[in-house]
Amino acid sequence: MTASPPHLTAAAPAALDPLGNDRVAGARSQAGGRDQGPFWKRAPYLIVLALASVVFTYPFVWLISASLKPRTEVFGSALIPRNVQLSNFADVWDYAPVLAWMSNSVVVGIAAATTVTISSALVAFGFAYFRFPGRNVLFGLVLATMMLPQAVTLIPVYLIWNKLGLVGTQVPLWAQNIFGSAFYIFLLRQFFLSLPRELFEAARVDGCGFLGLFRRIALPLSRPALAIVFVFEIQASWDDLLRPLIYLQDTSLFTIPRGLKSVIDTFGQGGEQHWEIIMAASLIATLPMIIIFAVAQRHIIEGIATQGRKG
């Protein structure tokens, strides 16, 4: 619900088959469709893609390389540092409590992602399973809140946390997620709607309560969608700069983006011009996200891809 893309969006995860069979087969038939022509026909496109890939990967490779270079070489274009200087990482460790920032970000991220996944799933199930007066109006309101710029509520929400004496703590960075988030509610509702209703009817006949329907049927069948929500929110939380700027003063409580910003202020622009340290810190901040991407790649890409399908 904060910062940048994947969120602030609308999606229809139709491609995610709730029972998990269709997805692989579907992807394969699509990929194998029109365009799996003879190699010589695809070759020019592959060359274009290879060139584009170089452009897209180069800054990243350059970041790794710059983080290993001594101060005098850091701006250089050589990808292999003439002198590898691993001490940049030790310097980051010495000058800035990076480990504390990392663990702060992990704690805040897990708190944000766990709460938002559970609460959004509960609310989404309410909108998906039941027919009740006011449903369409309320769901329209859920969608409408996605259009609302964060700026409009920023100040009064700060005043609420201020009143509660929680400014200066990490609580305001995640606690709002207890109440769900519009985009995820929308995403999960679409998913729940794709579950066969007979499953729920059968369970009702067997005397299962509404909470049971949610816990024993909807949730277990929705693991891929829940994983998407969880990972998206981890990423959003890991990326959030505005709220840590507003709420955190104590350096030891900083999350990684806020910490990295303070490293930039100390060693970069108008500071001591130690860009190799900034590059090392940037790489440290990025690595956990790369690991998450490596693990959850399919979920992430599938989650993003579905946004365009139903328009």
């Binding site: 990243f60 990326d239 700069l241 990684i256 990295l260 901040a285 991407f293």
Partner: peptide
């Protein structure tokens, strides 16, 4: 690149 934190 989208996984790279915007501050980085």
């Amino acid at each position: 690149p989208k996984m790279t934190p915007t501050v980085a």
